[in-house]
């Protein structure tokens, strides 16, 4: 089993993802440069957070045309496991692998803090180690995480259980007060229709070791490892 962490110019959570997968979880992990044209036999691709191409034009809009993204799209369409975190989520939206788009946070501020996430669907490669409705404590750090999608797609996302995480309070209640950025229906993470591509704004790689205070992020990486092992 091998993990690949894509490195775009301006990625800044690539090392964190690599460290968690390689050192904290003991997985074979490689960096993949954005100009590469091979995924090097990886079973799971991580699109990390950061500011790819300086967030110029729109977040993720230019990274989405990196040579490696052709490979990632082909891999995803064949059922390969892809997780996009923060800027990685924005790249997935721009590439059309996930529906919707990000607006500026409703506060127009960069928000960097721990939030609570309600796990809405545990029948996925990314959440199978969680309990239904489990509240995960994971940090966010973004200026453009205000998720938007048209009404029909939003209905489909709900109907098909594709909204995986919603911002909630500490008791798991999904309330307007718990929404840090204005996202429609408190959406923090979604999957594509077949369920093999996840985009999430919070950063699980920043809370996967006891030394960092919280370890809930590890559940997501362990879910992927467990799922790949079973396959």
């Amino acid at each position: 089993m091998k993990f690949g962490v894509v490195v775009f110019p301006g990625s800044n959570c690539d090392h964190d993802c690599y460290h968690v997968l390689k050192d904290a979880l003991g997985q074979d992990t490689a960096y993949i440069w954005h100009k590469d044209r091979s995924l090097d036999g990886c079973d799971c691709i991580v699109l990390p957070g950061g500011f790819s191409y300086g967030d110029y034009l729109r977040t993720g809009a230019i990274a989405r045309f990196s040579p490696i993204m052709n490979e990632v799209e082909g891999f995803a369409k064949k059922g390969g496991i892809v997780i996009g975190i923060c800027n990685g989520f924005q790249v997935l939206l721009e590439s059309g692998l996930l529906p919707g788009a990000m607006r500026h946070n409703d506060s127009v501020k960069f928000v960097c803090k721990f939030v609570n996430l309600k796990t809405e669907n545990i029948d996925t490669p990314f959440t199978n180690r969680c309990n239904k409705g489990q509240v995960l404590r994971i940090p966010i750090a973004h200026g453009e995480g205000n998720y938007y999608v048209d009404d029909n797609t939003l209905k489909a996302l709900n109907k098909e259980n594709r909204i995986i995480f919603r911002y909630c309070d500490k008791n798991g209640e999904v309330t307007p007060d718990a929404n840090p950025n204005g996202s429609l229906e408190n959406i923090a993470g979604i999957v594509n229709k077949p369920g093999n591509v996840l985009g999430m704004m919070p950063h699980p790689e920043r809370c996967s070791e006891p030394v960092l205070g919280f370890v809930d992020g590890k559940l997501i990486f362990e879910s992927i490892i467990g799922w790949l092992r079973k396959r």
């Binding site: 721009e94 919707g100 788009a101 938007y148 999608v149």
Partner: peptide
């Protein structure tokens, strides 16, 4: 293709 995101 690039300059505009038709979703928003």
């Amino acid at each position: 293709k690039l300059l505009v995101n038709p979703v928003i």
